[in-house]
Design a protein around this nucleic acid. Structure first.
Length: 280
DNA sequence: ATACGCCCCTGGTGGC
DNA sequence: TGCCACCAGGGGCGTA
């Protein structure tokens, strides 16, 4: 799915077409996503002025004049398709929500697997929403420090890979960027989380931040169904050092004697990629 | 509290 | 060409 960089890219695409505009038309085509789209959403959106956007973890929040916020989560396969006024291409399959702005831009939420979600809540209570309430720190905020991460990992016997996927520890990382950040920090995904606090956390925090910032600058990673809202592909997938590179030589040790090849292991049912020689 | 397996759902890919 | 197993960016739930 869209992880933090992809969600950030999608949020910016929505902002460019909807912030300061009005939703002229809203249509729900299919309500049974991860949980049902609230029955009142269509009516609440129609005619609403959009005042702003915010991202929290992998969630997008769209604020409406009048005090409500729409929560959008893309799940594994969700994407947003934005098309300009006058384009009359056939709507894509699995387009569950369509918005048309007062300027005629068409915004479709497409999600084949329907693991995504839409909800409606008062803007003042955004952070109290059950899906947002337990989230850990934003990795790109100043509050995400080695000390904060160390405190969250202290005493955890679980592998660092699983700990970083836990949205209560840090919010917004997913399977791709955890592998990439651990490579950058030269830490094995198999290492127990309680051994990270200290110097390793000092490497890991900037590694997570640099990985995410570079991915955002590249428009995210494109694979399977992810494209930016304007239809362009993100291109960070070309910068992956380990994800999806099983059997290739690690770029930190190509050709070196005893050079390890990138290895794939399953942890908690998800693939982790790492270089067994340089990641310890 | 914590950790793991399983489930939600559709589609793409590669092997036979 | 067809069929089938397996895999996929998330996350919540029940069970130990």
């Amino acid at each position: 799915m869209p992880e933090l960089p992809e969600v950030e890219t999608v949020m910016r695409g929505l902002r460019a077409r909807l912030e300061g505009r009005t939703i002229a038309r809203a249509q729900v085509n299919r309500a049974d996503l991860r949980f049902p789209i609230p029955p009142g959403l269509e009516r609440r959106l129609t005619g609403a002025a959009v005042t702003g956007f915010r991202r929290r973890a992998k969630y997008i929040l769209m604020r409406l004049a009048g005090g409500d916020s729409v929560l959008l989560h893309l799940g594994m396969s969700g994407r947003v398709a934005v098309s300009p006024p006058g384009s009359n291409a056939a709507p894509p399959l699995h387009e569950h929500l369509v918005l048309v702005s007062n300027e005629g831009w068409r915004i479709g939420l497409v999600d084949p697997r329907r693991f995504g979600a839409l909800d409606l809540m008062p803007t003042a209570a955004e952070d109290a929403h059950r899906l947002l309430a337990g989230l850990g720190p934003e990795p790109l905020d100043p509050g995400f420090t080695p000390n904060r991460l160390s405190a969250a990992l202290a005493g955890k016997r679980t592998p660092i890979k699983a700990a970083l996927l836990d949205q209560r520890v840090v919010a917004g990382l997913g399977n791709i960027y955890v592998s990439e950040a651990l490579f950058r920090a030269a830490i094995s995904p198999l290492r127990s989380a309680h051994t990270i606090p200290g110097a390793r956390a000092g490497r890991l925090v900037p590694a997570i931040q640099a990985t995410l910032e570079e991915a955002i600058a590249a428009g995210g990673s494109s694979l399977r169904d992810y494209v930016q809202p304007d239809g362009e592909l993100g291109y960070f997938q070309h910068a992956w050092k380990v994800y999806g590179r099983e059997g290739e030589a690690c770029e930190r040790c190509p050709g070196a004697p005893g050079c390890g090849l990138i290895r794939r292991v399953a942890q908690a049912g998800r693939s982790s990629f790492y270089c067994p020689r340089t990641q310890r």
